[in-house]
């Protein structure tokens, strides 16, 4: 198929950006979206233009590096996938496709479609862990049985890939789905309960510092999340936060 592309080009963080038109032809439905961008970039290199910069790595939907905003949706029109897993069969010959970076105050553009998501790392460093040293001298892994439903729910929250689609999608640029996924995972497990209060307070504090907005329960993040992280995590985080604020020491 032949496609028209309108792509955000921005040389660096301080320079202004704009949408630029491109054409690609002979695109097969079996290509992934990023493979289509590969085709465009080969074309640009051939004609001595600078290729479009975009983040990507594993190309199997798990590393969370790819981050395009396609036709007004994070990771494009398909559900439950990242951009690298979006396939061109979702588009038709002659389509015009708008491709932009994830936009949010907390995610400044580095170049073209590449944004800086290190705010997520800083939120994690504020409390997204269990304070246990990696000495190996812990108790036997089966010493504390964990009810399967709790373990499963913790796992579901833990599958967040930290891509930032939730932030890009949210009208408030809120990072609450991301933060609540980690808060929930650890709050649901006995190992994480010990410092649950401190954790939720510190992570939320850092989240606010990074300039992410608040949650107004629109639910768009859940819809666009490639891993189906549930909105109920945000509800859990709010409960944890409230109880920690009342009873915590911070």
């Amino acid at each position: 198929m032949n496609l028209k592309l309108k792509i955000w080009r921005q040389p660096n963080a301080s320079a202004p950006g704009k949408m630029v038109d491109y054409q690609v032809s002979d695109i097969s439905g079996d290509m992934s979206f990023l493979e289509m961008i590969d085709v465009l970039n080969e074309q640009l290199i051939e004609t001595d233009e600078e290729p479009v910069a975009f983040d990507h790595d594993c190309r199997e939907g798990i590393c969370g590096m790819c981050s395009m905003y396609i036709n007004g949706e994070a990771h494009g029109p398909d559900r439950g996938v990242t951009t690298c897993q979006l396939h061109m069969r979702k588009f038709k010959d002659g389509d015009t496709i708008y491709i932009e970076p994830f936009r949010a105050k907390g995610f400044p553009v580095i170049k073209d479609l590449v944004v800086d998501r290190s705010a997520f790392d800083r939120i994690m460093a504020a409390g997204g862990f269990v304070s246990v040293n990696t000495s190996g001298n812990t108790m036997d892994a089966n010493a504390i049985p964990i009810p399967k439903p709790d373990a499963d729910e913790a796992f579901d929250a833990a599958t967040c890939i930290g891509c930032g689609a939730c932030v890009a999608t949210c009208k408030n640029s809120s990072a609450m789905l991301f933060v609540s996924a980690k808060v929930s995972q650890l709050a649901l497990l006995p190992q994480g309960k010990v410092e649950a209060k401190q954790r939720v307070l510190s992570m939320v504090e850092q989240m606010d510092k990074e300039g992410f907005g608040n949650c107004s329960n629109t639910g768009a993040c859940e819809v666009e999340c490639p891993k189906g992280i549930s909105l109920s995590n945000i509800a859990r985080m709010n409960r944890e936060y409230l109880s920690a604020s009342i009873t915590g020491d911070k």
Partner: peptide, 20 residues
């Protein structure tokens, strides 16, 4: 390794009895 990871909150698959 398994002990360590469980202590860190890695959610391994479990059986209904709550064990790994």
């Amino acid at each position: 390794i398994i002990d360590q990871c469980v202590a860190q909150g890695v959610p391994f698959a479990r059986e209904y009895g709550g064990l790994l």
